[in-house]
Design a protein around this nucleic acid. Sequence first.
DNA 1: TATGAATGAGAATTCATTCAT
DNA 2: TATGAATGAATTCTCATTCAT
Lengths: 216, 216, 216, 216
Amino acid sequence: MPRVPALAADERLRDADRSQATILAAARDEFAEHGLGGARMDRMAERAGLNKRLIYYYFEDKEKLFQAVLEQAYLDIREQERKLNLLEVAPTEALRRLVEFTWRYYLDHPEFLTLLNSANLHRARHLEGSERVREMNSPLIATLGEVLERGRKEGTFRGGVDPVQLYVSIAGLSYFYLSNSHTLSAIFGRDLLSAKARNERLAHMCDVILGYVLRD
Amino acid sequence: MPRVPALAADERLRDADRSQATILAAARDEFAEHGLGGARMDRMAERAGLNKRLIYYYFEDKEKLFQAVLEQAYLDIREQERKLNLLEVAPTEALRRLVEFTWRYYLDHPEFLTLLNSANLHRARHLEGSERVREMNSPLIATLGEVLERGRKEGTFRGGVDPVQLYVSIAGLSYFYLSNSHTLSAIFGRDLLSAKARNERLAHMCDVILGYVLRD
Amino acid sequence: MPRVPALAADERLRDADRSQATILAAARDEFAEHGLGGARMDRMAERAGLNKRLIYYYFEDKEKLFQAVLEQAYLDIREQERKLNLLEVAPTEALRRLVEFTWRYYLDHPEFLTLLNSANLHRARHLEGSERVREMNSPLIATLGEVLERGRKEGTFRGGVDPVQLYVSIAGLSYFYLSNSHTLSAIFGRDLLSAKARNERLAHMCDVILGYVLRD
Amino acid sequence: MPRVPALAADERLRDADRSQATILAAARDEFAEHGLGGARMDRMAERAGLNKRLIYYYFEDKEKLFQAVLEQAYLDIREQERKLNLLEVAPTEALRRLVEFTWRYYLDHPEFLTLLNSANLHRARHLEGSERVREMNSPLIATLGEVLERGRKEGTFRGGVDPVQLYVSIAGLSYFYLSNSHTLSAIFGRDLLSAKARNERLAHMCDVILGYVLRD
DNA sequence: TATGAATGAGAATTCATTCAT
DNA sequence: TATGAATGAATTCTCATTCAT
């Protein structure tokens, strides 16, 4: 005779999902802070407030867990990008929004940068099997291509711009600055993360990207 | 009592130097391939063909070894940059040379990228103590500043360009593309390292940087 | 409150019996393949297609489960032996039947051999409590004793043959050959399980046993 | 300036050998007592009075260690068998010696029996790679074949006896009795290891083997 | 300068078992 | 009767580091 009402099964299900999500978040932070090699399963369990064994129960092993974390990370950024509605504003505005969004996202999600770094250190072997990741990412390039095309038709943008190249450049301008801010700050003896420095960087990047795309 | 005749003092020294250099190279490769957390002292010794104990003899511990590797890496790239003689050619040509060199260097030294990534994952704590690194790097910014100033005076370059921002952008355009080439290739389903793709990227980057600096 | 109509009491029981039998068979195979130490409760559940928790529900723990498996194994072989009706044929024929049966049974039930090995590795502590096992086994020796006695009276068998010794010898001749067939095959570089080899072994064993028992 | 005399290098070597031998003995006992699955690396280290890490240093992993233990075990019994000098005595005496030796050896080395059992549980995969084991074992069969041949020529032995079959029978008669003495004692309710029982068994086995081989 | 032997702390992973329903 | 979720205690194996010469 169950003491709780009929929702029990649902509850249990929801618990399982919640546990998995908690683990995933804890793992993401741990991987982001220490890299794949430096991350500790013990610390993840502690961060999640759950038994270490449970991580293996749900994710099999460290490698598979990392893969799950990566997929989740891409899922998140691409979902946010979709919300920018780049096709509903003027092309120039669309590009500016993308540059700003990318900058903001990397700034707010430093873990995304280090996760990418780890993935690349291991030659993206964690993405190879994943078709989901490719599916997730192609819409972005399609959208960017459309923006460029509309700008060109309108007469504001130059022609012949490859959306993949442009996306990589937009991302790279933010990425290198933020991912390497520690070494760069040490090297150039100047705080690159002060509010002023950040504003300057954003302005610079807009100038660079728009300077390249806009017709003279 | 050694059975082989005593070596001349400087001969022994030369052996010592050679051993250190061998270790450093082995360590660089190991750190580059596996990251700081994933690198194994055992493998370094094996790569170097020397006893593991010797690594400790010369470099004290893993952290210090990583620091030494990093310093060596910066030393090398900055030395190569110096050879570009950017002040002896026209400003536009100087910028183009810098873009090309950076691209080329990252392409030829993929280990440099992963070393930087590792250093940043650990918040550059390996550079903090090192004054040498700052000293190494400032001349580059000074030179770039001079190039920009001469371009501006000449009338070819726009004014108000921060050499640090520009350097970060130049580096970032190559860095992101190459450092993340594995994930990007997986994500966009397109080989970013084919000869054709590489040429296109280089052309694109020159366009972006010069498009930004040149006066319309 | 179950959504399916209540089962008749005996139907539920039958399900319970079936589950227990399924578990027992799965456990027997798992113990036989991996030994007591190497057997995995998880795998048993999987083999049985039942929830792991159920094994504990019915058998309390791994040790008790092993004991149950062992008892079942003895129950089976002794029951088969009873069916030989050794007292209904001539003594010589009875012995030949026992040798053949033992050989055949070990050949068809390799799991019996490994279960015995495991039991002995653990010094038979799984049988100590079990009176059932002794009860099961004594009739065999009694029967064999009778066969020998009849043979002696008849004049075909020599006297003074201890039925326990003889039974151990009959079992041992088959057991060692089959239980160690892998190492022996490896050691002597000759397949001991080919049809020809098996026939030869059976003939050899009959010769040995009858050669010993029969009066010259 | 070394404080110990020039033998140092030898000393060290001997230490390494001694450590390996100590580990091997500890591992043999542990495997024999608990089987491959139940053996604990920790306990081996404790038994050996050496650091657990050292076991991995010398033997790589548990599987390889087991293999080394097995090879050592075969090496030992075959070496002892060689010392029997079976070709220097009369054929009947030679067989009796072999039966007695086998019995004695199994009695004195119960670990040999359980090691064999473990090896067979794992289908002798630990011997597959090992050519040494085959080499070790073939001389025994050759010797036994010669004994049988000489007995036949002499007129005391029957012809057509396969030395492999005979060897397996000799071993099996002792093996089953001793390896399963625990279950057999429990089952038949009679102590099979008392001095009296042991003497009776040995006499029985000689009777069985010689009864088979000798011409009537 | 160079090395083989040795170690303690810790890492990923496993396992029998229990909880809650 | 049956099950998915959860756990604590091991267990195998790894790693940076030190010893002794």
